[in-house]
């Protein structure tokens, strides 16, 4: 009974500290006369502003109310533009229009720059993750290979990558390798992240494989399996389960590290945040929002891996 009330007390204290921290942030923003303008943020996530449809060339517009269509006939004989999907016409029947004139409005939701940035970050992370796992798996296997060429190559790669900052690697990938192989920004960014994360995954794979008792390999080989069969059917499935927790950490790092590619002008979540700050002058709100969105990504991933771990623990 006494124990239970103690537990409640500690939980209460925890909540109190959280509230205190929140108040601290509020008070400190007050002390620098910061005005919170949260209402400016949502439009950069999802925009409800109507989008305008503009005339692509000079011509004459005809509005047909019966079928709700606008037809723009070109002055110089280009194919006429027929607009059916609009909510409000901004011109009258028979108006002359010039290239770039707004002729109609479309209402509805469009995604804002922050959501777009989130999507780019997600895409960047997933694509680099897939390549990083492949690179890491093969490098990890090469690292424990008996063939000195494979082993030394793997060690050189791992040491080179782990010994240099990711930011520098991103620059090298974009300005040197990207120029030589004429890669676009996104590919260069993915390559840098995949090669960087691959080195760490290789070490995780190596330690995972080496943590499996040698008797497992002996048993598999004594049953007539060759090295590859034994690896694929016996060693790797066990190593996979054992390396899930460190892998999860590495995957989460990858998502966070992807923010560095904004330096080569990939409009990921971080760069989108910077752009929105410059148009809203609401840096606190924007960066808190961006942080929260990163937290959603990493939190989802870490939950998914925990779920996988639980499912794989059937044989424990």
């Amino acid at each position: 009974m006494e124990n239970k009330s103690h537990l409640l007390l500690w939980k209460g204290l925890f909540l109190l500290i959280l509230i205190g921290l929140g108040f601290g942030i509020y008070a400190s923003s007050k002390s620098i006369d910061y005005t919170w303008r949260w209402e400016r943020i949502p439009q950069y996530i999802v925009s409800t502003e109507p989008t305008e449809i503009r005339a692509p060339f000079d011509g004459t517009a005809y509005v047909d109310d019966a079928t709700n269509t606008i037809t723009i006939e070109s002055d110089i004989g280009l194919d006429p533009l027929i607009i059916k999907d609009f909510d409000e016409a901004m011109i009258y029947d028979g108006d002359l229009v010039f290239e770039g004139d707004a002729v109609a409005e479309q209402t509805g939701w469009t995604i804002g720059p922050i959501t777009w940035g989130l999507w780019i970050t997600l895409k960047l992370s997933v694509v680099s993750l897939i390549f990083a796992v492949v690179i890491g798996l093969f490098t990890g296997l090469a690292r424990i290979s008996h063939n000195p060429v494979l082993r030394y190559l793997a060690i050189t790669y791992i040491e080179l990558i782990r010994g240099t900052p990711l930011l520098v690697q991103i620059f090298i990938f974009y300005f040197f390798i990207g120029t030589v192989l004429s890669l676009d920004r996104f590919t260069a960014g993915v390559a840098a992240l995949a090669v960087f994360t691959g080195a760490y995954i290789a070490e995780i794979v190596r330690s995972g494989i080496q943590s499996i008792h040698p008797g497992q390999m002996e048993a598999a080989r004594s049953l007539g399996m060759n090295y590859v069969q034994a690896m694929v059917n016996v060693i790797l499935p066990q190593a996979f389960k054992r390396t899930l927790p460190p892998m999860a950490g590495q995957f989460i790092n990858l998502i966070k590290d992807s923010s560095l590619v904004s330096v080569i002008s990939i409009t990921d979540l971080t760069k989108a945040g910077r752009e929105v700050v410059s148009s809203t002058f609401a840096p606190f709100e924007v960066w808190f929002t961006v942080a929260l969105l990163y937290l959603v990504l990493t939190g989802t991933l870490s939950w998914a891996i925990q779920y996988l771990e639980k499912r794989l623990s059937a044989s424990d």
């Binding site: 002996e218 048993a219 049953l223 007539g224 399996m225 066990q238 389960k241």
Partner: peptide, 27 residues
């Protein structure tokens, strides 16, 4: 040449039946 080890060396990620079936299927 079948071999039985002191420490069994069963594959822990497979059931008893899975252990027995693995090699006949793969090899």
């Amino acid at each position: 040449v079948g071999m039985v080890f002191q420490s069994f060396n069963l594959f822990p990620h497979k059931t008893a039946l899975g252990n027995v079936m693995l090699s006949p299927i793969k090899v």
